[in-house]
Design a protein around this nucleic acid. Structure first.
Lengths: 149, 149
DNA sequence: CAGGATCCACAGCGATACTG
DNA sequence: CAGTATCGCTGTGGATCCTG
């Protein structure tokens, strides 16, 4: 694999840094996991993650502010109004990152003897991520390099 | 004492959680960026990231412990021995995650008027990530679902 | 140059109690 | 149920000084 080398990376406008400012903490990625698993309600997050209410509130508000999730109120018959949180388009586009983490984590960290999480297609077969060029031709890692432009 | 409930998501063996325990902080992802950009030396990280020495030491050791980077000593003529850090195979496989974050960050957070970071192929054209099945057929996002198995 | 050792400030988080 | 409010602890990170 080739690497681009330059002494002056653009730090402030860097997509890694900006993304890390949103996702780089103890909880946000795990909340996103719950959202991708289809959970939408406050108490589902609270129960599944064993997170404190106050922190959960803060993180959900943060995700709303950044436009990754959308909060809506709904009401079932004879019940009080409740809130639910759903991934926005922007948020759901993180599925590529989630898929990459799933692949890497399953390969390198997870015990395959136990139950584990993965992404499958409609036939139930596991999928994988690949880099492609403009013509959808699959690229080898040796073809890739980082660049500032 | 808390008990793990098998009927729910496998939290303890979850690839997202396990990966997040390594990457989910303020600095690790940015150090990985520097490594993917080809930087290898302590003072390069220190200068590029504006991170304090003590924290940088801790984070580098952590990455070594987790097997994401390899520390080696080397010595140039007439100079003292120095250390360098390079991505291991395990670490460099995170390029899919880095690529996904680059794509997402560039689309959603980065000002394209300024310089920004991306991944290109040998012709200099930008690449993208796609999900494929076992036969390398590109999948639509509608075909995907998360599953425990 | 590559850390170690200290010290300190503060943000993050959990626990608990309270509210509409 | 979905938060607020408050409290206190701990861990993270920055700053400074020291070492081979």
């Amino acid at each position: 694999m080739q690497f681009y080398k330059k002494s002056e990376t653009n730090r402030l406008n860097c997509p890694i840094q900006l993304t890390n400012q949103i996702l780089g903490d103890k909880w946000v990625l795990l909340i996103l996991r719950e959202l991708f698993l289809g959970n939408t309600k406050f108490d589902e997050f609270e129960k599944n993650l064993a997170i404190s209410k106050s922190v959960l509130t803060v993180k959900l508000n943060l995700l709303v502010q950044h436009g990754l999730i959308i909060k809506t109120d709904y009401k079932e018959e004879k019940k009080r109004t409740r809130s639910e949180y759903q991934l926005s388009k922007k948020g759901s586009e993180l599925i590529f990152m989630m898929g990459a983490i799933l692949d890497w984590g399953n390969t390198n960290l997870v015990s395959k003897e136990e139950t584990y999480l993965k992404i499958i297609d409609k036939t139930g077969a596991p999928v994988k991520l690949v880099f492609v060029n403009q013509n959808n031709k699959i690229l080898s890692l040796n073809d890739l390099s980082f660049e500032l432009s």
